[in-house]
């Protein structure tokens, strides 16, 4: 079996659908930023065309070797890797979670509201109303730690989450905008008001000493944002024990990279957060990663850019049994 073609089709909002086809008629699809189309095409030509699509491990490392430090090429490699896994699992009529060896298990999930998407507090309320039927017990709000509106937004998030079984878990996406001491001061004030589970990038993630300093001086766990790539980005964090949780993303790590890096983190017993992605396909990892913690949900099922078989109920994301990634490409994206 060999990969024969790579093509892209424009979708809405600057995104494109990429499709990899094999000589037995099998095809794998995934989404990529339209701006990365040409990068992905060059990478596919060089590393994938003519290759056996089941060689996922070897192809992933080959693509990374070719991408080097080019972050656009790294993101393109991740997209191609996801499409390869879609191809392989679709061909064998298996959902991705089974193809990677996982058990069918719902993913603990947290609702994520971004500063960019939601803007004013009023927009948060609309989002919370839309999310209410899904019963989220965990939530993340993204904002600079020094934002005056942050305590109010966290309070509203707390109120919007389902507290029927236990107090909701709160995450803050701090966006790496503070110096370590400023982050410690701001988080310490917030911790007088709230029991915060974890903070994403309280200072820039590349500042390993600073990240460690913050972790050592607050109660909440600290995790990385998506500004670092692969083992190169995580190695020093592992060595310094500067992160309490590791966040991975199919958008930069692919499926193969998530599996590999989650193993590395498991060596330190560091829990894994899976960042949001179209179709919420990160739900497929819940039954395969030994220290899976939570899946970030930005795309509510009714608002998905890639409608998928992943369903959300009582704050759990269920990947379903549809083959591959389970994305319904025939359904128009939101």
């Amino acid at each position: 079996m060999k990969i024969t073609s790579f093509k892209t089709t424009s979708l809405a909002a600057g995104m494109s659908r990429l499709c990899i086809e094999a000589d037995d008629g099998a095809a794998g699809n995934w989404i990529i930023a339209s701006a990365l189309q040409s990068v992905a095409e060059k990478l596919a030509d060089a590393a994938l065309i003519g290759q056996e699509p089941r060689s996922t491990t070897s192809l992933w490392h080959d693509m990374l070797d070719r991408a080097g430090n080019d972050l656009q090429a790294r993101a393109a490699a991740a997209a191609l890797d996801v499409a390869l896994w879609d191809l392989n699992s679709t061909r064998d009529n298996e959902p991705l979670w089974k193809k990677i060896g996982g058990s069918q298990k719902p993913a603990n999930a947290h609702l994520s509201i971004t500063e960019r998407a939601s803007g004013a507090t009023q927009s948060d309320d609309v989002f919370f109303q839309q999310a209410a039927p899904f019963g989220f017990r965990e939530g993340k709000v993204s904002a600079c730690l020094t934002s005056k509106s942050l305590p109010d937004r966290i309070g509203k998030l707390f109120s919007a989450l389902d507290a029927s079984a236990q107090p909701p878990s709160l995450y803050i996406g701090a966006q790496g905008r503070c110096a370590p001491k400023d982050a410690i001061a701001a988080i310490s004030k917030l911790e007088q008001l709230f029991d915060i589970t974890a903070i994403e990038a309280p200072c820039p993630t590349w500042d390993i000493s600073g990240t460690k300093k913050v972790s050592e001086n607050i109660k909440a766990a600290v995790f990385n944002d998506l500004s670092i790539f692969g083992r190169e980005g995580l190695l020093s964090h592992f060595r310094r024990r500067s992160l309490d949780i590791v966040q991975l993303s199919v958008l930069k790590d692919g499926v193969t990279g998530v599996l590999e890096l989650a193993d590395a983190a498991f060596g330190y017993e560091l829990p894994i957060l899976i960042a949001s992605s179209p179709g919420n396909i990160g739900a497929h990892f819940a039954g395969a990663l030994p220290y899976f913690m939570s899946l970030e949900i930005r795309d509510l099922p009714s608002k998905q850019t890639a409608p998928s078989a992943v369903t959300i109920s009582n704050g759990w994301a269920q990947p379903g049994d549809a083959p591959g990634l389970g994305i319904n490409w025939a359904q128009p994206s939101a």
């Binding site: 083992r231 995580l234 599996l259 590999e260 193993d263 590395a264 498991f266």
Partner: peptide
């Protein structure tokens, strides 16, 4: 095999 692969992946992350 699973444990072996976990160790190899951890080792790989540490070069």
């Amino acid at each position: 095999v699973t444990g072996c692969r976990q160790i190899a992946n951890m080792a790989y992350a540490h070069n």
